[in-house]
Design a protein around this nucleic acid. Structure first.
Lengths: 164, 164
DNA sequence: AGGAAAATATTGAATATTCAACGATTCCCG
DNA sequence: CGGGAATCGTTGAATATTCAATATTTTCCT
């Protein structure tokens, strides 16, 4: 009866009381990093829920959106724009090529580069996703307030700018 | 010479011009979801850089910080508090148990539950991490402004609250 | 010109995360 | 009380991400 199946489980008698006064330190919920993570997670979750029926993750929407200017974008530029590192982007683009949402064209001016383009299929999907995203933004603005939303965006932009 | 080694690469002649006027739609950089992702990513990157010398990912710091109230926290509560889903938390805690930063105690009142506690080793590490995190916050407040930082935190808190 | 260094994208192995299923325990209610 | 449903945490398989190494092409320097 002593050695149960779960490893790593102590039994309760080892509670030790702190011998020195514990300096409380700020709770995690007051750190900017935590608040950003939490807000980001929540907004993303909501957006993902809306995209669910199209079966497209948020990152692919970002890629499509960047490409929907119709110009070619190199993988490097795209990676920066959509906040993905290079290998992750390569693999995600592979999937999108399989789904015929985007295609690769070798840049004739610099043959190291690959220019990404959006396909017609990608464009029509993007439109559907955009309207889902817009409806989410509207929903946020609705019960969070237009002013708060605008203020928040402005502050975030400024933070990002300063952080670089 | 026709069939090169790279698959999926079209050659440039297939550029098609849009036949209908393209509605520009808002750029990705103006979406709240994108701004949050970008800010979160950047702040996290900076924090991770500071934690680098301790070799601890941000998530572990969050776990340690929550546990440093000295009370026991169930895995479920912890998962909510540190924004990780259950299996991910279980595996991260496994590593932290190996590193003797935390330990598990079976809850005697509800034997389905496991209560997590921080070890002494975990506590001293937490102190070092806290001071790194504080110095980051100070650095942010410094060239972003105390007011902006406070405003941003307030807005984020309110967004999170509304979103639930 | 020629060769070292830098830039670009991809690959493969190692690592991490997620999803679904499970085992154990407790709760609920007839 | 008894047994089905709910809760809690973990596991294993599938999937995704990351790190380091690679191949290719271009740039730079002398």
């Amino acid at each position: 009866m002593d050695q149960a199946k779960s490893p790593n489980i102590h039994h309760p008698f080892q509670q030790s009381f702190p011998t020195v006064a514990r300096m409380p330190s700020t709770p995690i919920t007051e750190h900017l990093a935590y608040l950003l993570a939490q807000a980001n997670r929540e907004i993303n979750r909501q957006l993902d829920a809306r995209f669910k029926k199209e079966g497209v993750p948020v990152e692919q929407w970002r890629i499509l959106k960047v490409l929907s200017d119709g110009k070619g974008h190199s993988m490097g530029d795209l990676a920066d724009a959509v906040l993905l590192n290079h290998p992750t982007l390569t693999k995600m683009v592979d999937r999108m090529v399989s789904d015929a949402l985007v295609y690769r064209v070798q840049d004739p001016d610099d043959r190291r580069k690959v220019m990404m383009f959006i396909s017609d299929r990608g464009k029509t999907l993007t439109q559907r996703l955009n309207s889902l995203a817009l409806s989410q933004e509207a929903h946020i603005a609705e019960n969070y307030g237009n002013k708060a939303t605008a203020d928040l965006k402005r502050l975030l932009e400024s933070l990002i700018e300063k952080a670089n």
